[in-house]
Amino acid sequence: MSGTPAALAGDFSAVLAGGDAAPAPRALSTSIRRRRRRVLPGFGLSLGFTIAYLSLLVLLPLGAALIRTAQMTWPDFIAAVTSPRVLASYRLTFGASLAAATVNALFGLIVAWVLVRYRFPGKRLADALVDLPFALPTAVAGIALTGLFAPNGWLGAPLAALGIKVAFTPLGVFVALTFIGLPFVVRTIQPVLQTLPGELEEAAATLGAARSQVFVRVILPIVTPALLTGFTLAFARAIGEYGSVIFIAGNMPLVSEITPLLIITKLEQYDYAGATAIAVVMLAVSFFLLLAINMLQGWTRRRSGALE
């Protein structure tokens, strides 16, 4: 996960104005930049193509969905997005996503810490394997996890002996979402831990801090923004996830039916308005999460930038 949207917007004026020896007043430097950007060709072509392609394939189709819901009356919309079956699906989707993101935050922190700080055989393999959920198609992950956690599966059988049912229950949804979200936390924390100067911990230890104190007082505050970013990324991915979940969930209405599946069910019943209404609720949540992620990434950069 290298593309951090807000970073991309970063002030590039410094580079562009870099050739000027004297710091020009703001208005003047702007006019210099204006003239300078014409040095390189292709601005109109590349920006024009970018905006056209983006509008045609992403913005206009998304806009169409919004306009479609705008044609519904307000009471119809509320009724469509708050029926008991829909509410039950929100509870499952958001609850399981929250639980999975929390587990990933905890174990992701441990995994990132171990991969950055320790040397052990198979470390590179483990590091490469972390990205598996990004690379493995969700349908493959779905049937593999279902087979594993089914009552007669490798992991499902011993768990069933303990009286724990995973596959075809909400617990299965949680397992699938944990798998999907794993790389997000590890890959956002790793770079921050790598740049963490050892002197900080050494200083704390020299001043008499216990190992646990060093972790809670020194390391955790530095890692927190990245941890929250990873948590939010994993959560955002989990609420929209479909492929890996539907095999293991069992898909019982009111019990183990996730919101994305409900959208598909409504579509298959030709209830386009109902499907779109739920989709708009999900889009609104995604949009707020995207805003939150942007802000968290800004915070991460300021926090770890202060160390350098």
Binding site: P5, A64, A65, G240, L261, A279, L283
Partner: peptide, 24 residues
Amino acid sequence: SVLTTLIDLPFSVSPVIAGLIFVL
């Protein structure tokens, strides 16, 4: 910065919704 955020938008949209908008 708005443009860069918009480019990232498909990542935060559920795949099911991505399919839905083309059906619409």
